[in-house]
Amino acid sequence: MTAPALFEPARLGPLTLRNRFIKAATFEGMTKGALVSDELIEFHRRHAAGGVAMTTVAYCAVAPEGRTERHQIWMRPEALPGLRRLTEAVHAEGAAVSAQIGHAGPVADGRSNGVPSLGPSASFSAQGLARIRQAGRNDIERITRAHAEAALIAVEAGFDAVEIHLGHNYFASSFLSPKVNRRTDEFGGALTNRAKVARNAACAVREAVGDRIAILAKLNMDDGVPGGFWLDESLQVAQWLQDDGSVDALELTAGSSLLNPMYLFRGEAPLTEFAQAMRNPAVRLGIRLVGKRFLRSYPYEEAYLLDSARQFRAALDLPLVLLGGVSRRETAERAMAEGFQFVAMARALLREPDLVNRMEQDPDVQSLCIHCNKCMPTIFSGTRCVIAAGSGPRSAS
C-alpha cells in the first residue's frame, strides 16, 4: 500500500486539512486575565502561515479550578470575542485551529486559582504547595458537563476541532492511573471504573457537538512512573474510545506532569531556568535542592514514542497522530508509511514556525531545534525558543 502524501489534503472527521502536520499543544503563556491576547493570536497566526494544517490552542480549561495557573483561558462567554479573533486570524492563513480542552485536576495550581485542586484521591501538591481535594460525584458530573459546554463554546468561536486532554495525569488521566487513583467506589479499582471519567467526557463532547467539528483526544500511552497507567491498559481504553464513537482521532502521548514530566519531552532538564522562572520562593528553592528527582533527563532521539505507538496502530482502526521527536520530513514520511494519519510537532516549530513550508520546498531541510528544552520554562513569560532571535513575545503573562 502506498503511504499517504505528506502535503496533500487529508480528512480528519468532518474536516479536510491541507496536509498531515499538526502544531501540537504547548501552553503559550500569553493569556493574562485568562483571556486571549494579541500575542496569542500572533503566535498561532505565525504557525498557520508557516505551513501546518492545524494549530492547537493550549490550554483551554473547562472550569476555573481546572487551570494549571490562574492566567490560563477557561472556556466562558467572556473569552468568546478573543477566541473568535484568534480563529479568524488562523483561517486567514489557510489553516484549521483546534482548542485543547480539559481539566488539570491534581496538576492545577490551587494557590494560584484560589480554590483547591481536584483529584481522584486526596493528596498534597508539591508544585502548588497546597492540598488536592478528592473529587466527589457532583464534581465529576459537573466537570463532565463542562467538557460539553466548552466544546460548544469552541464551535461558537469558530474552532474546527477540539482536543480533549486525557493525558499527563490531568483530571481524566489521573483517574486512569492506578498509582494516583486510590478510590474504592465506582470510579476506582478496575480499569472499567477508572476509565469512566475519560469516556464520559468524550461522549459528552460528541453528544454536544455531533460532527460539526472534529474531536481528537490526547491519550497517555503510559505515565512513565512505576505503578502508573501502562500500555496494556491504555490500549484497552483506546479501544473503548474507538467503540464509543466519541473521537475522530487519537494523539498518543506519555508522561505525567504530576510525577514525571520529562518522560514526554526527552533531552536535558533545564533545572536552572525552571528555578529562575518560579515566582514562589519556596518552589524555586525546592527545584534547586531536589529538582533532579522530579525533572529527570532522558536521551532524545527522533520519533521516540514510535515504538509504543506502533502497538496502537496495530490494534486500532482510528486515525492516529504521532507525537514525540518529529522534526524531520523523513520522520513524518516514515510515520505515514507505518499507517499514522498525522504527525504533531511542537519544539521544532517554536524554533522555526515556517519549518513545514520549508520541508515542502526542500526535502533535505534539517530542523534547527537542538532539544535543549529551555523553551519549557518560558511558559511563564510567553512560550518561545530562547535561541532563535525574534521567535516570540516576551511579555509576562
Rank of each mutant, 00 (worst) to 15 (best):
L191H: 03
Y298T: 01
D354R: 03
A201Q: 15
M345L: 15
N193T: 08
A275E: 15
A201T: 13
F21L: 03
E93K: 12
D362G: 01
E42N: 00
V62W: 11
A303N: 10
A346N: 14
V205L: 06
R329H: 05
L166F: 06
V356L: 08
G291F: 08
L118W: 02
Q72Y: 10
A157V: 05
S246Y: 10
E207H: 08
V247R: 12
G82S: 06
E360K: 15
A135S: 10
R67D: 04
T272F: 13
V180M: 05
T383M: 14
L258F: 14
R347D: 01
A204V: 11
E302T: 05
P81I: 09
P77R: 00
P281V: 02
P270L: 13
R183W: 14
E338F: 01
R394A: 10
T55I: 03
L259C: 03
T55W: 02
A217P: 08
E301V: 09
E207V: 05
E251G: 06
I140R: 08
R137S: 06
L285G: 13
E149R: 12
L241I: 04
S173H: 02
T87W: 00
L252M: 11
L83E: 11
T68Y: 12
R182Q: 15
S112G: 10
E65Y: 03
L295S: 04
R293E: 06
A34N: 09
G158N: 07
F171C: 00
N373V: 03
